[in-house]
Design a protein around this nucleic acid. Structure first.
Lengths: 339, 339
DNA sequence: TTGTAAGCGTTATCAA
DNA sequence: TTGATAACGCTTACAA
């Protein structure tokens, strides 16, 4: 692969001039410009991004850390391409790094991106605690944004949404439909999102004078299989229920599958609602209703802020994000299908 | 961020020694090692990967080019995380770049990875023609592998599978079940995979003395919506059919949705088979049967070859891949569900 | 076992 | 309008 030096030689100019032509900065006569372009063409020259990044101390890359349990599924894929597109429109590249299955690995992923000298980092955390993230943000000068967690110290560096409220509303909706025995399938309980959704459910029940029943609260793991297992448990215990609220669509799908196989009509005998509203949701099962999760909105917001910060020059971190936590209220119920 | 120089100073040694400690190459006494480690700790030092990559002319990164229409969906996501994991187990990172919606953009994606000095590149092409790819492979010294296309010149640089045969077998299966009016929903016809699947269908019909009917061949676009539209067209034309073979699961799902809404029982009145066997397939619809697509096997194979090449040292490109095209015969039919 | 110094391919600051 | 030349932070002969 030819270097800038070779191009310079071919064009009969210096490296510096070639660099100027390429960057468009500084004055270069039209004549030499032409020569340089011709030389570039001839040499099949391509700039070495590593060298450029090293020299400029910029990479034009934004890192994203996500655990693969999240991006390995229909939930995250749309988000990903949307984020990548948005960044590219701004002349940047998205680098995705797997946060894997532990806080340590999530941290390692962040470190890797830092080591790569990414211009900024977006974290969609799964295991990392708020305190650790607050520390990390303090430690590095690269802007780091956290999605879907409420940080304590650096509130301007995070964006999250009201999972509890969304869950509350979904439960309320079911109650208003006349349901009183509403089963709830939780997500993995080491996830704040799962906790918030559970508490929204409980709060709604309480508010309507219904005592939450332990027997109606099933521990799931976000997977269709765990949703199916939850329903099986319910049935084998002969617990009465007329509605199911699952903490995500995947579990709702698993739940519906088991119900259908057992000959229980959805939604005629049992109503099922999930969360996240994954893109294929409308096709997944005619009886699945879902509460939208605004991750894609959040991601857009994060990228906007990041870009305006990076492009905006030397804004101080603390002043940049004047708006507070972005809370979105987002319960959009899909229709019950198939009647 | 502190540099190696600073660490060296702190430890009272030279940069070179620090480098040796870090890389584990060359002799360093235990005593100085300890000092260096202490200094690293104290300084909170982290190596600058850009600088290292520039110096070594290696990035430990493997690039993957995929069009977002592919990775934005349940089809590719599993594959992605699997590939990333496999590479990481080998101390490498996967960089995913969007091939977008045209041959030019796919080429640009490849260029970007080349410019980043990725150690190797994997292309899952959508628009790029075989000839262009053959040219590119010739042009660069980085190993470039192509998945799901049969190259002309550099057969050792590609891995593909027998879509036609799989489609043939699926059609044959339906015929053997007694179906004669089998509708076929194609994928986008600018895709070789779509063409191959269509020709497998036709060939099977011909072999069993059934003349392919134009009215039974519907043009789809890989999306659930286009699958649904295809069935609507069929119904509005009052074309007779007792089975549907859709060129991928997404379209099959769309097809099933329309059939169900119209009150046509699947699979009692109409059998539906899709392709690709996406992970959620078993949960998508009880009546969906699917033919497995071996992409994940192919991807594994590609990575294995790439790694063995990169690690193996100075093997010449031409001699490395002694095995020929990897053709996998892979028709694993799921059971018809729900009876 | 360690240090010196020459790269790696750019950018960017000065002079000219 | 251009050319030297010093960074950028690391690796790696080659010497010592």
């Amino acid at each position: 692969m030819s270097t800038m030096q070779e191009v310079a030689k071919k064009a009969g100019v210096s490296k510096a001039t070639v660099s100027r032509v390429l960057s468009g900065k500084g004055y270069v006569s039209e004549a030499t410009k032409d020569q340089v372009y011709k030389a570039i063409e001839e040499a099949g020259y391509r700039p070495n991004l590593l060298a450029r990044n090293l020299a400029t101390n910029k990479s034009q890359c934004i890192g994203l850390v996500v655990t693969n349990t999240l991006y390995n599924g229909s939930y995250f894929s749309g988000l990903l391409s949307q984020a990548a597109q948005k960044l590219e429109d701004n002349g940047r590249q998205l680098i995705l790094v797997d946060g894997k299955h532990s806080a340590e690995e999530e941290q390692a992923a962040i470190q890797f991106l830092l080591d790569l000298r990414c211009d900024a980092i977006i974290i969609y955390p799964r295991f990392l605690t708020i305190d650790v993230m607050d520390d990390i943000i303090e430690q590095y000068k690269q802007p780091i944004m956290v999605v879907n967690r409420r940080l304590r110290k650096h509130q301007s560096h995070c964006i999250c949404c009201d999972h509890k409220g969304a869950s509350f509303n979904a439960t309320k909706y079911l109650i208003e439909q006349g349901h009183r025995d509403i089963a709830f399938i939780t997500g993995s309980l080491d996830s704040p999102t799962a906790i918030e959704r559970l508490s929204g459910y409980k709060e709604a029940l309480n508010q309507y004078g219904i005592t939450p029943q332990d027997s109606l609260i099933l521990k799931g793991k976000w997977t269709p299989a765990s949703g199916a297992a939850a329903i099986e448990l319910l049935l084998s215990n002969q617990t009465t229920f007329s509605a199911v609220l699952a903490s995500n669509d995947d579990m709702a799908i698993g739940a519906i599958k088991t119900l259908s196989q057992t000959g229980i009509a959805v939604p005629d005998s049992v109503s099922v609602i999930g969360f996240d509203n994954i893109p294929t949701a409308p096709y997944l099962h005619p009886a699945l209703s879902s509460v939208k999760d605004p991750v894609s909105d959040m991601m857009n917001e994060v990228i906007d802020r990041l870009i305006s910060m990076l492009d905006g020059g030397y804004l101080s971190k603390d002043n940049l994000f004047t708006s507070n936590l972005l809370i979105r209220e987002s319960v959009s119920k899909g229709p019950f299908w198939g009647k």
